[in-house]
């Protein structure tokens, strides 16, 4: 009797399962996000003219669609698989999720791309998402009490300064670790923003430019060492 060989399904690795579940959650999230404007339109019989939506989109989509694609390419290798799936659903990437994940990996001594970094980054981003949601929900339901405090003109400079306060500390950590590699992109960006301050609204697009400059400078240094 001819023996029949059964192919034994291989156990899924952690990364494979993160991709599988990540895709399921992401596809469901896109569906849920689209359902909100659809539900508003159906409930109130308020379908806006297509050309008006298109006109509104033309004001933001060219920049933000580009930024969105660039963010995936630049942040995905830093955040790992689970962190990327979660961070792109929960948003506030450059001001919150990316620095939070970098801080957690740095504190745990985990290098981006390793299994440990994958786990740490996912834990940091998930925690950050839950805390953000909780803070905003508490604020929404306690808005009467919080609004006078949060909108106090005396505190405004502090909330306006989140990004500089974050970049000072984070910059010192990463630039001191790799200062030779940091010189070229840093000088380029300082000169660029001094000459064209209006670019500050599209800083996201400049992240890969900085990365390319650092990479080219790094390759030149590697070649210099070989010669």
């Amino acid at each position: 009797m001819a023996s029949t060989k059964r192919s034994v399904p291989q156990a899924m690795t952690y990364e494979d399962s993160v991709h599988l579940w990540g895709r399921i959650w992401t596809a469901s999230a896109i569906f849920m996000f689209l359902m909100v404007p659809l539900a508003i339109s159906v409930r109130y019989q308020a379908f806006p003219p297509f050309q008006d939506v298109l006109k509104g989109l033309l004001g933001v989509a060219p920049v933000f669609w580009t930024v969105g694609i660039i963010e995936v390419l630049t942040y995905a290798p830093m955040l790992g698989t689970g962190g990327t799936y979660l961070a792109f659903v929960t948003g506030s990437l450059s001001t919150l999720k990316v620095p939070c994940a970098l801080n957690a990996m740095e504190g745990a001594g985990a290098k981006a791309g390793t299994e440990e970094a994958e786990v740490i980054s996912t834990i940091a981003i998930a925690t950050s998402s839950l805390v953000t949601t909780l803070v905003i929900a508490l604020g929404v339901f306690g808005i009467r009490f919080l609004q006078p405090v949060l909108e106090n003109p005396g505190l405004k400079p502090a909330f306006d300064a989140i990004m500089p306060a974050l970049m000072g500390a984070l910059g010192l950590v990463y630039i001191s670790k790799n200062w030779k590699l940091a010189i070229a992109p840093l000088l380029f960006m300082i000169c660029l923003f001094l000459l064209m301050p209006s670019l500050s609204s599209s800083v996201g697009i400049l992240v890969p430019v900085g990365a390319i400059i650092a990479y080219v400078a790094g390759r030149l240094m590697q070649r210099g060492r070989k010669d």
Partner: peptide, 18 residues
Amino acid sequence: TDSLFLGMISAFSGLLFA
């Protein structure tokens, strides 16, 4: 990987000078 990190740090640090 290092370049991607520094790309982000340098772009946002440059913004401080805008």
